[in-house]
Structures are given as C-alpha cells and as structure tokens.
Design a protein around this nucleic acid. Structure first.
Lengths: 120, 120
DNA sequence: CAGAATCCAACGGGATACTG
DNA sequence: CAGTATCCCGTTGGATTCTG
C-alpha cells in the first residue's frame, strides 16, 4: 500500500480537512471573506459595504451579514431610525480572521503579478 | 463625510478586496481549498481524494480538479491504463497556497476549541 | 479506475416592488 | 436607509448509468 509509510501524515491531513471544513461552514460563502476583510478596516453602514464590495446584491449582503452576526463575527448596531441607519462592525473574535484575510489578499496580489508578467 | 479622514485606509481596503476577489475566482469553490490542502500532503489518485474529502461527489471533484489544473495549481498524470489510474499532485505554484490553507486550518482548530469550551 | 453523460431536484441569486 | 417579499431563471450538484 502506498500509504503504509505515511499514516502519520494522513491523519494530520484528515485533521486539517476537518478544520477546513469547519471554517468553510462559517466563511465559505461567496462574499463572506470579502465582507470580513472590509469590516476589518473600519465599521461600515449597510449601503457603504454595498458600494465597497463590487458585484454583491443587497439581498445577498443582507443574508451574509446575518450569517456572520449569528457566528459572532460581526455586530449590527442601529444608529438612527427615520431614516434607519445601521452600522456593522467586526467583533474581537471576528478580528482573529484578519490573518486569514490578509494571507489570502497577499497571495492574490502575488498571483496578479504572476499573471501580468506572463502576459507581457 | 465620515470617510474624509480614512481615504488612505479605504484605498487599501479596495486593494485587498480586489485581491481577495482574484483569489476567490481561483479557489472559491466549495471544495477547492480542501483539495489543495489535501494534495499538499502528498499526491493522490482520484479515488483516494474522493475518500479523503468527506461529502464530495465524483462529478464535482472531477470538475474542481479540472479548474485547478487549468490554473496550474495541480497536475494530472495518467499512471496506467486498463484499469486507468490517475495521480493528481500539487504544483510548485500550487504549493504557495500552503500558507493559506494552513492559516485557515489553524483558525478552524482554534474555532472548534472555542465552540467546545462554550458548550461545556 | 477515472470520468463523461443524463436526468432532475434544490438552491442561489438577480430584478423589482414594498415597508417601517 | 435597511431591509423583506415575491417572482423567476440559471446554475449547482446528487444519483445513476455507461465507457475506455
């Protein structure tokens, strides 16, 4: 068996996969990482996030924020009524994802450079 | 305007969001990160990945692998015919995502601990 | 074994209109 | 402004079958 000698590695692999599965359940949505990254910079109102994240619709943003709030990654604060204004902010716990978002963003920047240098 | 003093931050935020968007385009699928994490441990045959990643179907794995291959993150090698066996391996470039997957996995492990300690 | 093909149900998500 | 509700269509993805 090709795996005879790598049982240790395999269990570590399984462990990672389980952990990744957990994470994906929480931030696996198409936009969740972007939203978190966004709010890590500063609290924002609903409409501001909508402007900041290109391509997302109000309906989806609403749903994603609700998910994130449920998992205690962001807070929702009503600032005013008439007209209602709501501010979303990252929680202390949500901020522990800053590492994740920045590692991803950094890879993206390098990836773009790689693509660009290939085109030229 | 509440953003007057944070224009610098905003552009940095936009930059991050753009980078994240790029990354999501490549590894944004439901299973791609898991597949990459998996192959970072060792090359695997199709059926092995299928066993390793709980919940994925053959159809989807096939498609995700094709995407990853297209973006030069994994290689596909036919080992034998009759019966055909194929090995998938991470490329050197794909390996640069190891940071990403491990940061995610680590967060997942901590998250699970947090959840567990809350339950008790 | 690896994967393509087919069928079909379920979900995602856009556009629009409406509400407090 | 920040959503919710409704309609509706396209894609996703599961189950199964088939093939080199």
């Amino acid at each position: 068996m090709r795996n005879q000698l790598t049982i240790g590695k395999d269990t570590e692999c399984k462990k990672s996969l389980k952990a990744i599965h957990d994470v994906m359940y929480i931030i696996g949505g198409k936009w969740k990482i972007a939203i978190i990254a966004c709010l890590c910079y500063q609290p924002m109102r609903f409409s501001e996030i909508l402007k900041e994240i290109e391509g997302i619709s109000g309906k989806v943003l609403s749903k994603e924020l609700k998910d994130l709030e449920m998992n205690q990654l962001v807070t929702r604060t009503v600032l005013d009524k008439q007209p209602i204004t709501v501010e979303y902010a990252i929680t202390e716990y949500g901020h522990t994802l800053k590492n994740v978002t920045s590692v991803i963003a950094n890879w993206g920047i390098k990836h773009r450079q790689r693509i660009m240098s290939k085109v030229l």
